[in-house]
Simulated assay, not measured.
Amino acid sequence: MISIFIIFAVFILYNINRLTFSLCLQKEIPEEKQPKVYRTINVLITILLISSFVEIAFT
């Protein structure tokens, strides 16, 4: 179960980063602000994935 969830999480993070890249291009976010945008989105998605795993694993 853990390996399936890890594969799923990597797939989700990859797609979210692609969408973030598209957002940065479309909204013309300056280069110096892009790392902060990526970091914020990645941290929030990681928290969401961890809480989802905990909920699935312990229920």
Results as ranks from 00 to 15, higher is better:
Val43Gly: 04
Ile56Phe: 14
Phe8Asp: 10
Asn17Gly: 03
Arg39Cys: 00
Leu48Asp: 00
Ser52Met: 09
Leu23Asn: 10
Val10Ser: 10
Phe11Cys: 07
Gln34Asp: 07
Cys24Val: 07
Lys27Trp: 15
Ile41Gly: 01
Tyr38Thr: 03
Leu25Cys: 13
Ile47Arg: 08
Pro35Thr: 02
Glu55Met: 09
Ile7Lys: 10
Arg39Ala: 10
Phe53Asn: 00
Ala57Trp: 14
Thr59Gln: 00
Thr46Met: 00
Ser52Gly: 05
Phe58Leu: 07
Phe5Arg: 10
Ile45Gly: 03
Arg18Thr: 05
Lys33Ser: 03
Leu25Asp: 14
Tyr38Lys: 06
Val37Trp: 09
Ser51Arg: 09
Lys36Tyr: 13
Thr46Lys: 05
Ala9His: 07
Ser3Asp: 10
Phe21Gln: 14
Ile56Lys: 14
Leu19His: 08
Lys27Phe: 15
Ala57His: 06
Pro35Trp: 05
Pro30Met: 00
Val43Arg: 15
Pro35Arg: 10
Leu19Met: 14
Ile41Val: 13
Ile41Pro: 02
Cys24Leu: 11
Ser22Arg: 12
Ser22Trp: 05
Gln34Val: 09
Ile29Cys: 08
Gln34Arg: 15
Ala57Gln: 13
Thr46Asn: 07
Ser51Thr: 09
Ala57Met: 11
Cys24Met: 14
Phe58Val: 04
Asn42Ala: 06
Ile16Arg: 04
Val37Ala: 12
Leu13Ile: 11
Thr20Ser: 09
Arg18Ala: 13
Ile16Tyr: 10
Phe11Glu: 01
Arg18Ser: 13
Leu13Pro: 04
Val37His: 07
Asn17Gln: 12
Val37Leu: 15
Val37Thr: 11
Thr40Tyr: 04
Val10Arg: 11
Leu44Asn: 05
Cys24Lys: 07
Thr59Trp: 00
Thr46Phe: 08
Glu55Ala: 05
Gln26Ser: 15
Gln34Trp: 06
Leu13Thr: 08
Tyr14Phe: 15
Gln26Lys: 15
Lys33His: 02
Ala57Asp: 04
Ile45Phe: 12
Ser22Tyr: 12
Leu25Gln: 15
Glu28Asp: 08
Arg18Pro: 03
Ile4Met: 03
Ser3Pro: 05
Ile50Cys: 01
Asn42Ser: 08
Ile29His: 01
Thr40Met: 00
Ile47Glu: 04
Glu28Thr: 07
Leu49His: 02
Ala9Gly: 05
Ile45Ala: 10
Lys27Cys: 14
Phe53Thr: 05
